[in-house]
């Protein structure tokens, strides 16, 4: 970030949130639902971006953190009958804990080995879900009933299956994470993360324990991705092993690359863009994976900075 005036940056982010808030009242039903999903998944992308964009650690296993949140929330509701807030916290805690363990192991490696190790741990996590199908529902998954997805606060109760409640809950989570990311990125910690990405050796020689900083980032990233997973389970009422598969480790990478790595709003833009591209093309082709594949290759070849990254480079140098 260069010479950003904090007021300008915060104004931009608040207006994005306000715009999303207003959209709830104008979007047709179908798109309202799609947007709720996109906002929940953009949180996943933001968590991924924190690690990939700002620290420069390319993980191929983030599906495990997303699904740790998904199952942490989903299974506590399904088997233990926990309420929505407790289940959400359980999901985030599962993700953070898993990220701590994985971080301690995987951060002993770097570069290509880091990518492969994270992919393998995620594969183990995925297979464990299949292996314990008796509890997780295996690849069939589990449906969480509407009755368990109601938040009762005082006298009022909010039904997460109601489209507006769902939209607003997704927006609330998205806004919190967006502002938290922005604050982190502009903080001293954020500056250290970027320094590690640029030159880890040099950062050490400025007195930073780079391993501890990277571990903190992995845990924060894992917790955010888990928050996305937990919200997804509670808002959409379904948990399934496909969310733990390799494909869900690749998708956040794709969204972030598309929107612009190391930009705060890039993850939202990438997720939104990709969702609508698939939605529009699904009219005449079912070849969803083909689009993903072609998009990945075109992005790394011709557009490595992504949409917002390129805009920042050309015009808006102050974008965080």
């Amino acid at each position: 970030m260069r010479n950003a005036s904090p007021a300008k940056t915060y104004a931009l982010h608040i207006s994005v949130i306000a715009l999303l808030f207003a959209l709830n009242f104008v979007l047709p039903d179908y798109h309202q639902g799609l947007f709720a999903r996109i906002m929940a998944l953009a949180v996943f992308a933001m968590g991924y971006n924190l690690l990939f964009g700002y620290v420069g650690l390319l993980s191929l296993g983030h599906a495990m953190f997303f699904s740790a949140g998904l199952y942490g929330a989903g299974l506590t509701v399904y088997h233990l009958g926990w309420g929505v807030p407790e289940a959400f916290v359980a999901g985030v805690a599962c993700g953070a804990l898993l990220a701590l363990v994985i971080g301690l192991l995987a951060l002993r490696t770097s570069g290509v080995a880091f990518m492969i190790v994270t992919m393998m741990f995620a594969q183990v996590f995925y297979l464990l879900i299949l292996y314990f199908a008796a509890w997780t529902g295996g690849d069939q998954g589990l449906v969480i009933q509407q009755a368990s997805r109601v938040i009762a606060i005082g006298g009022a109760s909010f039904d997460l299956t109601d489209p507006t409640v769902r939209y607003m809950s997704a927006l609330a989570l998205f806004s919190i994470i967006l502002l938290v990311t922005l604050a982190v990125v502009c903080s001293r910690f954020g500056r250290v993360l970027v320094a590690i990405r640029e030159n880890e050796e040099r950062t050490k020689m400025l007195g930073y324990d780079t391993v501890a900083n990277k571990l903190t980032a992995v845990v924060a990233s894992g917790a955010i991705c888990a928050a996305s997973g937990a919200a997804y389970a509670l808002l959409f009422g379904y948990v399934g092993s496909s969310f733990a598969s390799v494909q869900y480790s690749i998708l956040p990478l794709l969204w972030v690359l598309l929107g612009g790595a190391a930009t705060t709003l890039g993850p939202l833009i990438g997720t939104l863009f990709m969702y609508y591209v698939t939605d529009i093309t699904s009219g005449f082709t079912s070849a969803y994976l083909l689009i993903v594949g072609v998009a990945l290759i075109l992005l790394v070849l011709f557009f490595p900075k992504g949409i917002l990254g390129s805009i920042r480079e050309r015009w808006l140098r102050w974008l965080p």
């Binding site: 260069r2 010479n3 001293r188 500056r191 250290v192 970027v194 320094a195 640029e198 030159n199 050796e201 040099r202 950062t203 400025l206 007195g207 930073y208």
Partner: peptide
């Protein structure tokens, strides 16, 4: 081995 992609300000802000 300064941080080439960071401003001079940020380079010094780190220490």
């Amino acid at each position: 081995s300064v941080f080439a992609n960071l401003t001079a300000f940020d380079n010094v802000a780190l220490p």
